[in-house]
Design a protein around this nucleic acid. Sequence first.
DNA 1: CACCAGGGTGGTT
DNA 2: AACCACCATGGT
Length: 217
Amino acid sequence: MIRAEELYASLLAAHGPQHWWPAEDPFEIITGALLVQRTAWSNAALAVSELKRESLLEPAALADADLQVVEQTIRSAGFFRTKAGRLKQLARFVMASGGIEGLERQSTSQLRDALLRLNGIGPETADTILLYAFSRPVVVVDEYLRRLAERLCAGRTGVEDTALRRWISRGLSDSRRLNEMHALVVAHGKASCRRRPACSTCPLRALCLTGRSVSDA
DNA sequence: CACCAGGGTGGTT
DNA sequence: AACCACCATGGT
């Protein structure tokens, strides 16, 4: 049985530190989390800097901004009509919650439920926000992690997200390493081939060969 | 030219 | 519950 801590060490050795969102403005991170959905980060980052240039990277300004202006400003992030409306809604939500400081006072589960009620924020984006903007010790489950687990389990499919969460959080409980872990999983997912048996050059090959189950015990 | 990127929604079976 | 089309830009 592979421990999550071993996986973390192997990923870190193979790909190096990823330093995603190192302690920036929480609202900027929230905005980026929405803009990056199904989009290359370079394009999302461009949209974030454009918002900053337009002085729209603050809840009050964004909440009151003209929808058409927001659409054109974030154009580079793709799905710009959809995302512009969701961004404004998010800004209104932050305002109505007493700002970022108001959100920081909420418990992790309360904040997660509130985020999930918003249109355009699903489990992955909500957990990303909790982890990267509010430093909550949350496991982000994405498609890369599911594929990775599938390989570590020697092809076993259908592992539940809740089982993945328990497995990861058993070995990594602090937000700092969970932060790095998610970034490393994404980096590895993009770097490695997506065929069922991991290719022979995969840095995790040794783990794949010794791996059994993620959901056992 | 096709394919993909740090997802989520709404509709259909 | 498991699929599906759709949203749209920019890089390879």
